[in-house]
């Protein structure tokens, strides 16, 4: 934990320094009439102090249980999921909800879940059409139709 705490506290120090810098460009106002930058500036300073305390505390900590940050073989799956979510977001309005949901579910079930193909096709169809039915037709949630208009 010692090294992890050092790394994370250092990261938060940078975040808080950026916050202080950005909020210093906003009007601070006076104590009697605080401006838009007043609270973010104070919070940024506080966050820097807390990060510094964590950084100092981490030196007095023992190594303790060694924790692996990334599980073996699992990192690829994590990255694939994140990538698929971002791609889903980027192409949702172009390709439409039904097609994108079919593709996303198919990919997640097949590539990550290692589910057999016949079941993948069935579940992808049911989920995309079922969700469209429930959310668009029943709950009146506006889902994108895309260039194919479905």
């Amino acid at each position: 934990m010692k090294r992890l705490d050092q790394k994370s506290s250092f990261f938060w120090m940078i975040v808080s320094a950026i916050t202080v810098f950005l909020s210093s460009k906003l009007p601070f106002g006076t104590f009697a009439n605080p401006g838009a930058g007043f609270l973010p500036f104070l919070v940024g300073v506080l966050m820097f102090l807390f990060s510094l305390i964590l950084f100092v505390q981490s030196f007095s900590k023992g190594e303790g249980m060694v924790k692996t940050l990334l599980a073996k073989g699992g990192t690829g799956r994590v990255l694939l999921i994140l990538l698929s979510l971002i791609l889903y977001g980027l192409f949702l309005e172009t390709l439409g909800f039904i097609l994108m949901t079919f593709l996303l579910m198919g990919f997640l079930l097949l590539a990550i879940g290692k589910v057999r193909r016949s079941l993948v096709i069935f579940l992808s169809l049911v989920s995309s059409l079922g969700c469209y039915g429930v959310f668009q037709l029943w709950l009146n949630v506006q889902l994108p139709k895309g260039i194919f208009n479905f």
């Binding site: 999921i81 996303l104 579910m105 997640l108 990550i112 879940g113 079941l119 989920s127 969700c131 949630v141």
Partner: peptide, 15 residues
């Protein structure tokens, strides 16, 4: 199985 469950959890979150 979680392999089937997790895509649905993600899908519901996305919607």
């Amino acid at each position: 199985p979680y392999a089937i469950l997790f895509p649905f959890i993600l899908l519901f979150s996305l919607i």
